[in-house]
């Protein structure tokens, strides 16, 4: 089966004060229809940039796709016109963001904000869009939708606002939903509810989900496959259970060790890390011909410091960008 979304050799450049930096460097990935793929990695490694590039929403005048393709349904989104991208956004591919408190427009009712996207993409009239908005509020489990549909965002809690965002994102039954850290700003009990909701709705509608998160626990529960990103590059990719079972990249290993209940199920020969030591290299160094993790890696040798690792593929569909992946 052909992939729903196929990103190949994507390079995104940011124009910063210090010059042009390759915030994403030679990234390839595939997303199949209906599956949940997770992006994990430390802050600043380019997860959101990748998502925004797929949406065609890279920061104006700062970010641009320098090379590579983003194939969706036989069409290269990296080369699509603004008008075409506007047709796709919110209809075929939609996105929800990290900040539910500020992601809804404070001066319009939530009903209007849901109905708007239906009118835009589904040619619905006012009345049809409104009644569909009510159904959607019900689907995202907001109690008593009739009395909430005319509420303004400030009358709702963070969790409820994120549910409204999900309702907007799923309104047109998109093929892909990108959820960029959808629960980071919410408290723990609400986080679990939002993940449940996303998983259930994703299953019901057959929407493929790209879940960006720092929460390895959520990855284990939600996603079939995961991509570990480091400093704008793919460190490791593969089925979630396989990677947790046997990470083939020292960075992945470090990330997994950070999560106590995941470690508990694993064998004893893992070092007890509480965090991955060291810091991510600065944006300007992202383009270097070396393993960018080498400065933090205990196993790094001269080769790691002098040439960028090529991707190694394993039989279980695990890929690792580490020179020593085989020995790990």
């Amino acid at each position: 089966m052909a992939a729903l979304l196929k990103v190949e050799n994507l390079r995104i450049e940011l124009t910063t004060r210090d010059g042009i930096a390759p915030v994403i460097d030679d990234l390839s990935l595939e997303l199949n229809a209906g599956e949940t793929l997770s992006f994990v990695g430390e802050s600043g490694c380019g997860k959101s940039m990748t998502a925004l590039a797929i949406m065609g929403l890279l920061p104006d005048k700062v970010g641009r796709v320098a090379s590579g393709t983003i194939m969706f349904d036989g069409e290269d989104l990296a080369k699509a016109s603004d008008a075409r991208l506007r047709e796709i956004r919110g209809n075929d591919i939609s996105m929800i963001f990290q900040e539910p408190m500020t992601s809804l427009n404070p001066v319009y009712t939530i009903g209007e904000q849901i109905a708007e996207v239906l009118r835009r993409h589904q040619n619905m009239d006012q009345a049809a869009a409104r009644s569909r908005a009510l159904e959607l509020l019900d689907a995202v489990r907001i109690p008593n939708p009739k009395s909430r549909v005319d509420d303004y965002p400030h009358q709702m809690s963070g969790g409820q606002r994120q549910r409204v965002m999900i309702a907007i994102a799923l309104a047109c039954e998109p093929k892909i939903l990108i959820a960029d850290e959808p629960t980071t700003a919410l408290d723990v009990t609400v986080q679990a509810q939002i993940f449940d909701l996303l998983r259930d709705l994703g299953k019901e509608t057959g929407t493929a989900i790209i879940l960006i998160t720092h929460d390895m626990g959520a990855v284990a529960e939600m996603a079939e496959r995961m991509i570990v990103m480091y400093a704008g590059r793919k460190a490791e990719e593969g089925p979630v259970d396989q990677i947790i079972e046997h990470p083939r990249h020292p960075y992945t290993k470090g990330l997994i060790s950070c999560v106590p209940h995941l470690v508990a199920q694993l064998s004893d020969d893992r070092p007890e890390l509480t965090e991955v030591r060291g810091i991510v290299p600065s944006l300007m160094d992202f383009g270097r011909d070396e393993c960018l993790f080498s400065s933090r890696c205990e196993r790094a040798d001269d080769k790691c410091r002098s040439s960028r690792p090529t991707e190694m593929k394993f039989k279980n569909d695990q890929h690792s960008a580490c020179w020593q992946a085989k020995e790990l």
Binding site: L57, E87, R89, N105, E116, H121, I168
Partner: peptide, 14 residues
């Protein structure tokens, strides 16, 4: 520059 304008863009509005 606000988040809700980003949301509006993500909806595909003109």
């Amino acid at each position: 520059g606000t988040d809700y304008i980003r949301t509006a863009k993500a909806k595909g509005l003109s």
